[in-house]
Amino acid sequence: MKQFYFVVLTLIFFIVFISCEREININIPDTEGRLIVESYIEDGKPPIVILSKSIGYFKYTDQSTFESMFIRGAIVSINNGTSKENLIEICSRSIPDSLLPVLASFIGVDVNTLAAVNFCVYTTLNTQFWGQEGKSYKLSINYLGDIYEAVTTIKPKVSLDSLWFEVFADRDSLGFIWANFSEPAGLGNAYRWYAMRLGKDANFIAPFGSVFDDKFIDGRNFRFAYNRGSAPNSTAPDDTGSVAGFFKKGDTVVVKFCSIDYPTFEFLRSYEAEVSNNGNPFASPTTIKSNISGGAIGYWGGYNATFDTVICK
């Protein structure tokens, strides 16, 4: 569908051979920041809650503005069905550098960024409150007296049958990662795909369109492919130009395939649609489907991952 819009846009520009573009000033009033919740819990891992706030659209973002967007001092707790635990706030500047890689792997931000920016998360070291398959977790946030809540469930693991690399058309050494998948029968399953090239990517990266549900594929055996996602705002040579989006012969790629619950899927799908629509004046604004009560934007999502390694050859 995205390709469809791409074609439509191409077509419009195709005939509009003499269009013109200029920068304009738009007077948008400054509005107050809204609470943004990026939070998840994965099987066998600690819950991660990142709280931030929105800023004015045209506000220039330097490092201190960015850091000031993190919300500090909120009371965040997790209920695992039997008991409740308050999360602790950890900021990247206040922990030893040796622990940064651990934090980085949990929150999916690269170590260099964590070292450069004071990145704050709420989590717990109490393993009783780390993710367990089949359990539901309730998140509560008390920020300036307002309460925000959400519940998520960690769904059973679902693994892919097999994975391989295939060169695309006549692109020489470039291609995509393919997978055979037997989707379990019964509607309501949803998935998210991540991949990481060992030695090249700092973290698992979700390409656009990383989430899908079983509406069209319920109980089917089929194969599918994913292109390579790039880290946000990446200007790396292989993320720009004609090699962007491709894996390459010689890459060793770890694929993280996650089972997610339906509200998590709905949020991530609307979020990805909005991010990919960003700047497309023909698409109407997407409404983000948050699963958090109280007017916060974001989600509290349960993940259960399986991992596979593919050597591209």
């Binding site: 509005t31 809204r34 943004i36 990026e38 706030k53 929105s54 960015f66 946000p232």
Partner: peptide, 9 residues
Amino acid sequence: IERYFFEGR
């Protein structure tokens, strides 16, 4: 009118 950062985007 406003923007925020999510998964780095």
